[in-house]
């Protein structure tokens, strides 16, 4: 919410200083330029481009990291703390616990994005040169939500197969950061374009304010469904660990600890 309020006033400053800033951007090396929008870097001086490059470009990384941490801990955290063991001794099915927590986590993510949208809208209202209807600035958040859901479900699926919550969170977090770097570098290095196709962040629509493409959105959501199904199957079939399990030990090394 704060990010939106803080970022928007800077557009007026950027617009005022376009004559000085444009040559600077034009003079940047392609590799450096790739991290501030690549070929679209000069869109910074348009209201829409400014929001895309200075605000929406960061959101999928922030939300991706958040989703990786929250998704990996959704079940594994309580499992490692020994809480899930006692919870599942009550008449609650594994599917109910899984779906209930997934829905709650997803709704939390939606609520966070709605707050962020509200903050940006307040910022847009205050800025003199920005004039967007609230519905238009909502569109990129839908794309952010798709990326967030992808990483939420990916880290959840990883937490059901990896020895600990931390390893799952770090793996998913690494994919977020590596994906972001790869997606940006591919804007400058043509040889990386093929590899960037495997980065989920390539399918984030920075310029969704001018229209949301359904195909990349559906692609991310389709993968999210696949990760969800895999995580659900993993949770259905696995042994619930007791408190103290997890950490950096490989499963076969920590097995004796769980016997009592």
């Amino acid at each position: 919410m704060l990010l939106g309020l803080i970022t928007t006033p800077f557009y007026d400053l950027v617009a005022e200083n376009e004559r000085q800033l444009r040559p600077v951007i034009q003079g940047l090396k392609p590799l450096v330029k790739s991290f501030i929008g690549g070929e679209q870097a000069e869109d910074l001086f348009t209201p829409q481009g400014f929001l895309a490059l200075r605000y929406f470009a960061f959101l999928p990384v922030i939300l991706g990291i958040f989703a990786s941490v929250v998704g990996s801990g959704m079940l594994a955290s309580d499992e490692e703390r020994g809480i899930l063991d006692f919870l599942l001794a009550h008449p609650a099915g594994r599917s109910s616990v899984f779906l209930g927590r997934l829905a709650a986590t997803f709704l939390t993510m939606v609520a966070i994005l709605l707050l962020a949208w509200f903050g940006l809208w307040l910022g847009v209202l205050r800025a003199e040169s920005l004039n967007f209807p609230p519905g238009q600035i909502l569109l990129p958040y839908i794309s952010v939500l798709a990326v967030g859901t992808f990483f939420l479900t990916l880290s959840l699926a990883l937490s059901m197969t990896m020895p600990s919550r931390v390893t799952a969170a770090m793996t998913a977090g690494f994919i977020v950061l590596a994906g972001e770097i790869l997606t940006n570098l591919a804007k400058a290095i043509m040889e990386l374009k093929l590899a960037a196709r495997f980065s989920p962040l390539t399918y984030f629509q920075t310029n969704a304010m001018s229209g949301l493409e359904i195909k990349p959105l559906m692609g991310l959501l389709a993968f999210a469904i696949i990760w969800t199904v895999l995580a659900w199957l993993g949770f259905q079939r696995r042994d619930i660990r007791v408190a103290g399990d997890g950490g950096w030990k490989l499963p076969f090394l920590s097995r004796k600890n769980r016997i009592n």
Binding site: I83, P91, A92, G93, A243
Partner: peptide, 19 residues
């Protein structure tokens, strides 16, 4: 039918953890 079993049981684990 785990839910039916758990509905009929009371369980006190050896190592009890809560939020």
């Amino acid at each position: 039918n785990p839910v039916a079993v758990r509905a009929r049981c009371g369980y006190l684990p050896g190592e009890l953890r809560f939020d």
